[in-house]
Nucleic acid binder design. Structure first.
Lengths: 344, 344
DNA sequence: ATGAAAGCGCTAACAT
DNA sequence: ATGTTAGCGCTTTCAT
């Protein structure tokens, strides 16, 4: 139940009503509208006394310029959008996007796509209707040709984390194949021969890429692919079953590579105490990885660079819409903590 | 490669640059501007043939209405702001805010205050200049009187998680004192007598409230407060020292209450293997709490309700600016997982 | 049922 | 150095 306490006076007891506009400020200061605009925009060609009068009027009326009108008139918003899977979930890439954007004097408008294609489209189109200066998208679906008119209209768009099909846009992604290779070799070097992979569904781009890279590792290592590669939905039952098959078959796996953060946590939940005996290298770092027992060895994405580059690519395209499309691959790195070093 | 038709249209086939406006659509459809506006806004009083012609023109030109101009003219934006400590960090309250806002047909503009008073002010004022329909704030500083002019101008503002001093605004908070009480009693019932508290600095509102509540518990239980309550910065060294003092004094604590998520993770890092022998109840749930060994017993905030109520309070005030200010307290609940059930 | 014209609050040419 | 006058792209009286 909730406790509620009410009070009767209005929110803060001051005078309510319509906001002052520049016209009001101009009248109050006894100057022309244009002069107020000049002061607000720090135009140096305003006489000191006029400027002072205007500033006094602004303070007296508590005037705050209407950003909507400004942006409408100037044509630019100083705002970029980020359409990511989920804001409000640990998202270091988004954190980097925000930091970099702010450093560049840009406001960030972030929205969640919830991993839903339709929702992504709504979110991105809404950003376009707001005439943001550009949009960073963590793309969901297989075709993004719905963006063609927007790109033609000149809206700069950058893909982060995954590529966009159907349109030519700048993009930044991690080197997924290299990451899987690092994880695999790490376990091989620790003496493992039977190494299994559990990861995201191959309908998802990263799931597809990482599973493919893992298969390539097995083949290159002369190991049969059979019974070792389990892409699929991130679903407790599906993962539990994959684990059983991988660990209790005729030639059971002694080590495991997990394909992304969500898969990793579900795998750990399924393993329970068995996690202390199975070598694991996880793709994607997870919060508190160092507090697990054993602590989790991971292949970490360079999230700061991913997000930072996304913003820089966007800024570059805003500055020069005709520059050649650029696709950046960011290296990943291994963080050794214990789980990947368990013996076979 | 696709063959190009007559005009040189650039890589994706459309004409670059100028976006069509309603005037263009009107000309293309051979109707008045007003009619286009009617169609865009689903006005039912448009003849079927006219409507069809307009829709065809909209599709032909890839017209997307300019949201800035719309909002400027209509006065409302259909957008609310959320100024929280950090977007892009696990924040279930923000998640609930987003979900509830979307369900109400509101767009959410979230920004990080980075726990910085100045930054909060910038962020919130920027939202006001954008004339958002309302703003939800996770407040930082001690005085928020800078918001008075905005409240007077009619901007609805709601505080979430912590109260705002200096202004009267609607607010939602967790029942901190009750949560600390639950944690304390839980440990007492498990036979603990010496229970210590480590939490956030008392400069922070929640840190202050929780430390005070814990002291009250000790007193009510007839235990000396001395050497058991350690509020302070969330800093590795500070926390390590507090732990040493609490656990290795003349009458060492056998159980621990941690005051928030960040404190909890630092405490666990400091404890290392000793965490398996010390009873701990943490305020705030943390991701992967169930994967720790022992799994972490927590007092969890009802984040869904916190965020949902914040949006509802905001909507209520938008609907009726003169309604009485309302302060809501949301109950917390205990999640038993193991760490809090270790014996003395 | 449709259209002409007047703004929303601001910035930007163009005077003065 | 300051003021006048157009718009930005849309919604909205108010006619027709």
């Amino acid at each position: 139940m909730m406790a509620r306490t009410g009070q009767d006076n209005g929110p803060s007891g001051g005078k309510r009503g319509k906001r002052p506009t520049m016209v009001d400020v101009a009248r109050e200061a006894g100057v022309a509208l244009r002069t107020v605009s000049r002061v607000v925009n720090q135009d140096p060609t305003v006489g000191a006394d006029y400027a002072a009068r205007v500033r006094a009027a602004i303070a007296a009326l508590d005037f705050q310029p209407d950003e909507r009108a400004r942006q409408l008139r100037r044509g630019v918003s100083g705002t970029i959008g980020a359409a990511v899977r989920r804001i409000a979930e640990a998202n270091p890439v988004l954190a980097a996007i925000e930091t970099t954007a702010r450093a560049a004097g840009l406001t960030l408008l972030a929205s969640s796509t919830d991993d839903d294609e339709t929702r992504e489209r709504e979110v991105v189109m809404s950003m376009c209707r707001r005439r943001l200066d550009g949009v960073i998208v963590d793309p969901i679906g297989d075709s993004h040709s719905y963006l063609k008119p927007e790109l033609d209209a000149g809206t700069p768009i950058v893909a982060v984390d995954r590529p966009m099909a159907g349109v030519m846009v700048d993009s930044v992604m991690s080197d997924n194949a290299a990451g899987i290779g690092m994880a695999f070799r790490h376990l091989v070097q620790r003496g493992h021969r039977r190494i299994a992979y559990i990861g995201d569904h191959e309908r998802v781009f990263t799931g597809r890429e990482r599973a493919a890279a893992f298969r390539a590792c097995l083949v290159a290592h002369g190991e049969p692919v059979e019974g070792l590669v389990y892409p699929g939905n991130i679903d407790r039952a599906r993962i539990a079953k994959a684990l059983e098959t991988a660990l209790h078959g005729p030639s059971p796996a002694t080590a495991l590579v997990t394909g992304n953060a969500d898969t990793t946590t579900e795998v750990l939940r399924c393993l329970g105490e068995r996690a202390t005996r199975l070598a694991i290298v996880a793709f994607d770092d997870v919060p508190l990885a160092d507090l697990l027992r054993p602590a989790l060895t991971v292949v970490a994405q360079n999230t700061a660079e991913l997000g930072g580059t996304a913003v820089e690519l966007l800024r570059a395209r805003i500055a020069d819409p005709s520059r050649p499309v650029q696709n950046v691959t960011v290296p990943v790195s291994m963080i050794v903590r214990g789980s990947g070093e368990l013996p076979a």
